[in-house]
């Protein structure tokens, strides 16, 4: 991930009012995590699985602060149970920023399931999402996701793919 893309993500998060980032690190976003850790305006919370991160983000929402869950798109599968319970059961939203593993161009066999399952799972959860492959669109995508989630009180997701993460 280029430093300009990392900067765009952090600019978007700050513009959206995010002060807490829960993450489980992955390889495509590997430059993003240390940059988030180093940012004095953001508290990062590494988690043991993405579902735990979703739960923590839900709790941060209830405090009036804003959080985001950053992960590889495989983490969506680990998050489905708390996302369904919190989102569909109580209307507690989580905004997710995912790396798009397994899209066309993927050259790792183990990442293929991530690409095949991501969009159908988002659709099954009725989570609106945007796939962003243009660095210039990152910032607006993040702020749009937060605007929507704080109007709908439901989850939304941004997947960064293409040359942004390769």
């Amino acid at each position: 991930m280029k430093s300009t893309a990392v900067d765009a993500v952090i600019r978007g998060l700050k513009k959206a009012g995010v002060t807490v980032v829960c993450y489980l690190p992955d390889s495509l976003f590997k430059e993003l995590y240390p940059a988030l850790d180093a940012d004095p305006d953001i508290r990062t919370i590494p988690v043991t699985n993405e579902g735990e991160g979703a739960a923590i983000c839900g709790g941060v929402f209830l405090s009036g602060k804003r959080a985001v869950l950053v992960m590889e798109n495989s983490g969506l599968r680990a998050s489905v149970e708390p996302l369904a319970r919190m989102g569909l059961g109580a209307g507690i939203p989580v905004v997710m920023l995912m790396s798009y593993r397994g899209e066309l161009g993927e050259n790792n066999w183990w990442a293929i399931p991530h690409g095949i399952t991501m969009e159908p799972m988002l659709d099954a959860l009725r989570v609106p999402y945007r796939v962003v492959r243009d660095e210039d669109a990152i910032e607006e995508a993040i702020t749009d996701a937060f605007s929507w989630s704080y109007a709908a009180y439901y989850h939304s997701a941004i997947a960064l793919g293409g040359s942004i993460v390769r």
Binding site: A54, A55, G59, V60, L62, P82, A90
Partner: peptide, 21 residues
């Protein structure tokens, strides 16, 4: 009190709330 019907994310949510407040 936030009454939930969930398995596995109550303490996570409570921790997130504690972080925010």
């Amino acid at each position: 009190s936030l009454f939930q019907q969930q398995l596995g994310c109550v303490t996570g949510e409570a921790f997130g709330l504690a972080v925010g407040l």
